Simulated scan of single mutants.
Amino acid sequence: MSSDSITESESLYDDLEQMSVRQLLESIHAEDQKILPAVEKTIPQIQRLVEQVVERMQKGGRLFYIGAGTSGRLGILDASEIPPTYGVGDDMVIGMIAGGDQAIRKAVEKAEDNAALGWQDLQTYNINKLDTVVGIAASGRTPYVIGAVKKARENGILTGCIVNNPESELAKHVDVAIEAIVGPEFVSGSTRMKSGTAQKLILNMITTSLMIKLGKVKGNKMVNMQLTNQKLIARGTQMIVDELGFEEAIARRLLLLHGSVSKVFEVEKRK
């Protein structure tokens, strides 16, 4: 087997249709247990990337995730959860997918094979040298993603990638390559499984550590979360009660008045 074909290689299991449901579930679970050790090995590379992105974001830079298919959808998912969780604008972490927003739900034919389209899509955001582009591709050979990071790097923009094959073409064209080698998929080539799970874990690590270092967390609390439902209002109220010792009714009133836990803390600190 060549080093660039692990994600497309044959499953270690055969005759899946003859397995019982219990056998299928236990076998999938056995494969999933290989994910965490593979992700752990990438922590030094994740650290390198995050430390450089923090410096750029402190100066107004943005983080772009770019991918196709499952990889693109995972980037968009991670980016879309940052504003409500940390109270930042939706232009701080941006997810992009080959084929545009319609490809989130339904595949757009041949969009991922266009090597020029990724950079064109990035340019619509007036991308600049304070920004970072992270390409996501299980195979590491998606033209849409490779073309985007190559042009970004040529223009002095920090680049990274999350891939599931070693020594991939994509990894050759970025500053920081994160390679989570999880092995063959349970269903041969179905990279929505182990590869996708590893990508999701790494995306969680990147953006969570970024937001913490950018001051969006106090202690272990999401003090800048958007108050979009009653559950989050109750959570924010309890944070204020715990931190400042106010009665619940007062804490809730202050939270709704100022709009976030962090703003309540700021106002009370100035008194």
Rank of each mutant, 00 (worst) to 15 (best):
S3P: 10
D4E: 14
I6H: 03
T7E: 14
E8Y: 09
S11A: 12
L12G: 12
D15N: 10
L25Q: 12
L25V: 10
E26Q: 11
E26C: 04
S27G: 11
I28A: 11
I28Y: 14
K34H: 15
K34E: 14
I35C: 03
V39E: 00
V39T: 02
E40H: 01
K41I: 07
K41Q: 09
I43Y: 15
I43Q: 09
I43W: 07
Q45S: 09
Q52N: 02
V53W: 13
R56F: 14
M57A: 02
Q58E: 15
G61N: 11
L63P: 15
F64L: 12
Y65D: 11
I66H: 03
G67I: 14
S71G: 02
S71D: 06
G72P: 04
R73F: 05
G75K: 01
S80G: 04
E81L: 01
I82A: 01
P84F: 10
T85Q: 07
T85E: 00
M92V: 14
G95K: 03
Q102A: 13
A103N: 00
I104H: 07
I104Q: 09
R105W: 05
A107Q: 09
V108E: 05
E109C: 13
E109W: 05
K110L: 15
A111Y: 03
E112C: 04
E112R: 02
E112F: 03
D113L: 06
A115S: 15
G118S: 10
Q120L: 12
D121V: 06
D121T: 07
Q123R: 14
T124Y: 15
N126I: 09
L130A: 12
T132S: 01
V134D: 02
I136S: 00
A138S: 08
S139G: 13
G140D: 05
Y144L: 00
V145A: 04
A148T: 09
K150V: 10
K151P: 00
E154A: 03
C161I: 04
I162F: 02
I162V: 15
S168I: 00
E169T: 14
L170S: 13
A171M: 08
A171N: 06
V174Y: 10
D175I: 01
I178H: 01
E179G: 01
E179W: 05
A180D: 06
V182H: 08
P184M: 08
P184E: 14
S190F: 05
S190K: 03
T191D: 10
K194G: 08
S195Q: 08
S195P: 11
A198V: 11
A198D: 04
L201Q: 00
I202C: 00
L203E: 11
M205P: 04
M205E: 00
I206R: 04
T207G: 08
T207Y: 10
S209W: 10
S209V: 14
L214K: 09
L214T: 07
K216C: 02
V217K: 00
V217P: 02
K221H: 06
M222Q: 02
N224D: 13
T228D: 02
K231N: 15
L232Y: 06
I233G: 02
A234F: 15
G236H: 09
G236V: 07
T237M: 11
M239H: 10
M239T: 13
V241H: 01
V241D: 04
D242L: 14
E243P: 12
L244K: 05
G245I: 14
E247N: 14
A251D: 01
R252P: 11
R253F: 12
R253C: 08
L255P: 11
H258L: 07
H258Q: 08
S260F: 13
S262W: 06
V264A: 02
F265V: 09
E268V: 12
